[in-house]
Write a protein that binds this DNA or RNA. Structure first.
Length: 472
DNA sequence: TTTTGAGTTGTTCGA
DNA sequence: GTCGAACAACTCAAA
């Protein structure tokens, strides 16, 4: 009987898993293996939150495999070495894996293919990488036409979902290493689901009749509400199939009771399409990982002040909305999307710090940190990327707070020093009269910092810095 | 090949 | 307080 290896990377699921399906149709016996690669675990772009989520996801997947007569084999080392060794041990004739598109993954897989017969299978995106192209065959670099084409292709033939197999035959007696200790045993992922069944339940609840998806258009911008799906870590590691998510979104669009509800579902679908878009951008333009997509923005004279970066990183900029967001990130490994834009704009356009500093910090902290989406988002905000925000679009850290956290609920939740501050000063506490500062126990400059920079001044500085870079 | 319309998420200023 | 224009042209996608 033929044996195949199913090499898992970021597709920790049994349902709608094309790589697994290929392995099962190719061979009677399948060996699921995950290889802990120290280059990834110790990378400066890695972080404890994400590793913790990954380890939990591996444990849950092992449970699910055992319920189907199989189990997850863990190996540690270089994938080339480990796969070649496992290949010999189980006498496998082919390795199946889900295609990945980061520069590291591409190099790794190319190298692995020199040692074992490797078949890469789509599944990382809702529509296969490279499937959505311009008429001339080139990749899109602007989102809106990309999304139009994406939707047209999707509606042309909505992909069928592959059912989870009832049984997976895995030969006995294969050595598996123990998983390393969880770097955050108290569960960084307490707020996040790492199991496949729970992720699917969460998706179902999100798109259920009267579910949050139908209010998503209006509520998604409010970090003080709990109105997003929070499925990003599951999509990051493939605990949830992006196709399944996109199908749920389009079905919700079709089931919507009114136009507003339909737009809610479509807005969420658009977020999934953004995810596909940035995966394709990274695949087609791998240099974005290292430098700005737009050459004319590569010569911006960054200010790069280390102590200002530190204030941003730790949530002590003196702008409450920014600080709340940065503390939410540090404490939970996740940040609301609206807040991600605001803090990114603040780092790049108020502090004039190289977007790559922020990108790396996000990768170290985010439980859902994905090289493609994170890079795309940072370059969008910085105005250096594909389809980027115009350089003069600079978020005002105060008005973002007033607009999207009107009562200061989000600020008070994450910045306890300001809990007693009156509503009218919650986003501009430095304007509080001395008497109120004393009464409420938030003396500015002592309990809570003064703004690290004046926004109006910083805005002008950035406009000039970007203009100079352009005219070079 | 040329032309045309359009482009996630904002802010500021002045009427 | 509200509204429209300016911000800066430029590139992309498609007809």
């Amino acid at each position: 009987m033929t044996t195949a290896i199913w090499w898992l990377r970021r597709d920790l699921r049994l349902a709608d898993n094309p790589a697994l399906a290929h392995a099962l149709s190719y061979a009677g016996r399948v060996v699921p293996v995950f290889i802990l690669d120290d280059r990834l675990l110790n990378s400066p772009y890695s972080g404890a939150r994400r590793i913790s989520f990954l380890l939990e996801g591996l444990r849950r997947l092992d449970d699910d495999l055992r319920a189907r007569g199989s189990r997850l084999i863990i190996r540690r080392g270089r994938p080339e070495t480990e796969l070649a060794r496992l290949n010999d041990e189980v006498n496998a004739s082919r390795v199946f894996a889900q295609q990945d598109c980061s520069p590291f993954a591409t190099r790794r897989d190319h190298s692995v293919a020199q040692y074992v017969p490797l078949t890469l299978v789509e599944g990382i995106s809702a529509l296969p990488l490279g499937a959505v192209r311009k008429e001339n065959g080139e990749p899109y670099t602007v989102f809106t036409p990309y999304s139009r084409r994406w939707k047209a292709l999707w509606r042309q033939s909505v992909p069928a979902l592959l059912p989870a197999p009832d049984r997976i035959d895995t030969p006995p007696g294969i050595h598996s290493e123990a998983l390393p200790d969880d770097p955050l045993p108290e569960r960084a992922a307490a707020h996040f689901i790492a199991g496949e069944k729970a992720a699917q339940d969460a998706l179902r609840a999100f798109v259920a009749p009267d579910g949050p998806i139908f209010c998503y258009k209006d509520h998604r911008d409010r970090p003080d509400l709990d109105a997003t799906s929070r499925l990003s870590p599951c999509l990051r590691f493939g605990v949830l199939s992006p196709r399944m998510a996109a199908r749920a979104a389009t079905e919700a669009m079709d089931a919507a009771q009114d136009e507003e509800a339909r737009l809610g579902a479509e807005t969420w679908l658009n977020e999934l399409i953004w995810r596909d878009f940035y995966l394709n951008i990274l695949a087609a333009f791998p240099h974005v990982r290292r430098e700005s997509f737009r050459p004319e923005t590569r010569s911006i004279a960054w200010h790069n002040d280390a102590s200002e970066f530190e204030a941003w990183r730790t949530g002590h900029t003196g702008y409450p909305f920014i600080d709340a967001a940065m503390r939410q990130l540090a404490e939970t490994g996740w940040m609301h999307n609206r807040a991600r834009m605001a803090v990114a704009s603040f780092l790049v356009k108020d502090l004039l710090i190289d977007w790559r500093w922020g990108e790396r910090w996000f990768m170290q902290q985010l439980i859902d940190g994905d090289p493609a989406s994170n890079n795309g988002g940072w370059q969008w905000t910085a105005g250096t990327g594909t389809d980027a925000a115009p350089y003069f679009r600079i978020f005002n850290p105060v008005s973002q707070g007033l607009k999207f956290d009107p009562q200061g609920v989000y600020v008070r939740r994450w910045v306890p020093e300001l809990r007693q501050a009156p509503d009218e000063f919650i986003h501009e506490p430095w304007k509080m009269p001395q008497a109120i500062q004393a009464d409420t126990g938030c003396v500015i400059g002592q309990v809570y910092p003064r703004p690290v920079v004046d926004h109006g001044w910083a805005r002008e500085r950035t406009l000039h810095a970007y203009q100079s870079a352009r005219s070079e």
